[in-house]
Every structure is written in C-alpha cells, then in structure tokens.
Design a protein around this nucleic acid. Structure first.
Lengths: 149, 149
DNA sequence: AGAATATATTTGCATAATGCAACTTTTATT
DNA sequence: AATAAAAGTTGCATTATGCAAATATATTCT
C-alpha cells in the first residue's frame, strides 16, 4: 500500500507543475483559480455564485472577490436574478468564452502530448481508470459538499 | 477529446478538496505545502534545500521560508554540509517523522476508503494506469525541471 | 595570494489568495 | 409589521508566492 501512496504523490506533484504553469492566453496571465471558475461557469447553465463556489469547494467570501476580479477583467458577467435579487447569476463574456476556450485548447494539447506516449489501449485504460477513480472518490466522505456525481 | 478534459478537471477538483482538507495531526494544522516538504525530506536521503525545492518545483526563496517555518515548528532540522557550508542538508526531527508518518497514515486510510469502492481488478488497473500516466507526464515538456523519473 | 566569478541561501518588497466575523440587502416566515 | 433566514460583500489578518538584491562560501583566474 505504501507504493500506492507514492504513486499518487508523484501524480499530485506533476499536476502541481501543470497547475503552476497555467495559464497564459494572449499575453494575459490567468491564475489557476480563475481558470477553474471560467471552466465551471462555462459548464453550468446560468449558475449562481453559490452553485459555483460549492462546486469548487471555495469559501463564498473568497469566491466573491475572485468573481469581482473576473468582472473587472471583463471575463465574467454578473446579473441579479429578477425573481430574487439576492441571487447573482454568472455568465461568461465574449472574451471570457474566448479565454476559456483557449485554456481548454491548451489543456487538450497537453493531454494529447501526454497520451502520445501511450498506445490506444493504454489511453483507453487510463481514461477509464480516471473515471473509476473519480466515481470512487465521489463516494468517500471527503468529497464535495454538493452531490456532483 | 472534450470528455477527457472534463474527466481530468473533475479529478483535479476532487484532489483539490482533498488537498484543502489536509492535514491535521494531533490538533496541529499542517499546510499542504508543509506536508509535501515533509514527505520529500522523508523520501530523499540527506537532501539539500535545492534538491527538494526542485523536486517540488518551488522557488528557492519561497522554499527557504517554508523550511524556516518547519524548523521553527521543530519538524525539520537544517545543517550546513561540512564540505560546503553554502549547502544546507535537511532532515526530519523525531516529531517531524511522527507528523509525516501520521499524514501518511491518513492518506492511506483515505486511499483504502477510495479503493473500497472498487474490486481487486479495478484497483490494480487504476494503480497501473496512474503509473502509466505519471511516466507519460514525465515525458512531456511541461514536466519537472529535475529528471525525476 | 588576491581578485573576480559563480553558487547556495536569505532578506526586502510587493502581490495574490484565503477564510472568519460582521455587515448589508433582499426574501421568506410569523 | 416584525423577525428570521438567505445571498453576497466588506474588514481584517494570515499565509504563500516570486523577483531583485544581498550575504556567505567556494571556485577559477591572473
């Protein structure tokens, strides 16, 4: 079991490298947390502040400040929900969509690079395994406060 | 290829949750970066500041401050190399070893929990896949400055 | 042998991210 | 109408980060 810990430790470290060198688009540096936010807003349809914060496991006060930064950078738009003005709905601006797409492309290029070192069978096995891992992690008590299965 | 990106994004997020809720030992909070440092010092035999900093991909100035914190917490010992006093060699104190072992145990308990949701074949496949992934990531140009294969 | 250069680490400085408590605004409940 | 709850913001303090400059030590050159 000790070797399994090391395997995960190495993976964590390598993802740490990847996270550190993320993300630059058109000379503009996007921090990791900003990248994650753009991704989730892109993924969810008209999400609220709370929904995204929960998905990311981020404190709402920290999240609020990050969103303010992104609004200031003109990457995110924030609008009150007509039915309940306490709730703010988030969406990406045109530039935000562009940035999100560019980061997506960078990640895909990287993943292609990683998978270029594997044959087709290995690639399918790895992807299936990560899916398995994700599902198994979702079932643990450590996981995400929001049922995101 | 888009789904693969999402699979990795979910995994990154879940590890983010895990990283956030790491690590508390005997009522003492150990930050993630501290936990990583203790782990690497434990792993490498009489490593220098530079060696660990490179392994973790951390700026040496940031690393220097973290090590100072750990020395102050009496978890790490720092000694000049007799042959070259510019070089500091790091080692864990008795308490540092205890903390590192406790975190190791927590991680192993967590991994057991995760793997409890898989059968033996699935577990072996996942571990083999992570190994594959680690090796493939090591081969990309994004990876670690130190040849850590 | 002394000067110049290189190396390992530390310090000064400024920035970014974080999370708790308290606050404001809005909606729901009594 | 008053009270409670919910969504998000602000004040405050802490932690981590990385660049430039500095210090101490080792190596190389003259």
């Amino acid at each position: 079991m000790e070797n399994i810990r090391e395997v995960f430790q190495v993976m964590t470290r390598r993802f740490g490298f990847l996270n550190k060198n993320c993300c630059t688009v058109g000379g503009q540096d996007i921090s990791l947390i900003h990248s994650h936010i753009l991704y989730e807003i892109d993924k969810q349809h008209n999400p609220s502040m709370q929904q995204i914060a929960e998905t990311l496991g981020t404190d709402i006060t920290t999240f609020s400040r990050q969103v303010q930064s992104l609004v200031k950078m003109n990457l995110v738009k924030k609008s009150p929900l007509p039915e309940d003005k306490r709730i703010s709905v988030l969406s990406l601006t045109t530039e935000g969509k562009f940035i999100a797409a560019a980061i997506d492309e960078q990640m895909n290029v990287y993943l292609k690079d990683v998978f270029a070192n594997m044959n087709e069978f290995e690639r399918e096995t790895v992807v299936r395994s990560i899916n398995l891992l994700n599902d198994a992690m979702a079932k643990t008590s450590y996981c995400c406060t929001t049922p995101m299965r």
